[in-house]
Nucleic acid binder design. Structure first.
Lengths: 184, 184
DNA sequence: CCCTGATTAGTCAATCTTGACTAATCAGGG
DNA sequence: CCCTGATTAGTCAAGATTGACTAATCAGGG
């Protein structure tokens, strides 16, 4: 299990008992900035955490719909939470960015087209950045995470500008050397 | 399939025919900065891409070991590559960082311990940054990606410092208000 | 020339993830 | 009070991912 999803679920259940649907809904509306957890995955993880003994649940029957399971964190779950949050806060996991893969094959495109495409990416990033900046006043902790994303985006924009500049430089060199080769 | 792994595989096969093991090895040693593709996943994707008609392969028997499949990109695969690289370069996918989950539960720890843990994270990030800076002269494109990670890390460090400062500020406030409450 | 541990090459079962589906309940317009 | 579309709640099978495994070949010390 060893990952941040368990931390997420335990952290919420610690504050309040909840059934699967509500849990997912809560994450999707309040914690979407820091995690993207699909409904079915949430149920799967809750099952696993129950098997692990980190949460227990009470079947709640209402009418003749399938019974809801209301989950509650166990002492073992609380211990796991304490361990997981410390591990999460104290360590750093380096990341790969999906957008970098394209960069690895930048040379396979004509420089002019590459620049054109990267400018489109730049515009998309700028949109994302302004969207973040004009975000509604989020609650305390979410604010930290939004600030994180804002800074990340700003750094990425700076970097992208340099990438574009480099490709343009190469494009100019290629063209001028091409002209030199054909003119004397 | 619609993702960056296909782009990665096609981009390599475009330059050279290769069998699965060599392909994975190549990525793991030369493109580890931009993708983490497990061996078994590589084989799985190659199968799928063959089914899709993006690559073909030739069985090569040697001795009595199981025959290797040497993959080659097809015209359809080349088309897919052209489409995928344009999509990848032109768009931006916003990201979530696993480390942010812990931040969401920062208030559940004593501020002093939180600060202590975050300082550990800071040290780990600093290590990662110096490792990047003292990286061996990587080839052209990889350099771009390393520069990306360097900038990302630098921005994250700045941000983390502010997070720590904020937690410390709150810690001081809590302590002094506690003193005020107990002294008059 | 033989033995041993490393490397090459690939497979597989177990686990995880997801979109699509079911089915009951609720809100409120007619 | 009844019908309809939205919401609530959860399940499931298809697809993706991974660690562990097999099994042949190779390098080179004795």
């Amino acid at each position: 299990m060893e990952d941040e999803r368990a931390l997420l679920l335990l952290g919420i259940l610690r504050r309040q008992d909840m059934h699967g649907y509500r849990l997912h809904e809560f994450i999707d509306t309040n914690l979407a900035v820091c995690a993207d957890l699909k409904k079915a995955t949430a149920y799967f993880l809750l099952d696993k955490m129950a098997a692990e003994g980190w949460v227990s649940y009470e079947q709640v029957q209402e009418g003749n719909r399938p019974p809801r399971r209301v989950y509650r964190i166990t002492p073992a779950g609380e211990q796991a939470f304490q361990r997981l949050i410390r591990a999460n806060l104290a360590t750093y996991a380096s990341m790969r960015f999906p957008g970098d893969v394209g960069l690895a094959f930048l040379d396979d495109l004509k420089p002019t087209e590459a620049v054109h495409l990267l400018r489109q990416r730049r515009a998309a990033m700028l949109d994302a950045l302004t969207a973040l900046q004009s975000a509604p006043e989020h609650a305390g902790t979410a604010q930290l995470i939004i600030e994180h994303q804002r800074r990340h985006l700003a750094a990425e924009l700076d970097w992208l500008d340099e990438v574009i500049a480099r490709v343009e430089a190469k494009s100019r060199k290629t063209r001028s050397s091409g002209r030199r080769a054909s003119s004397p």
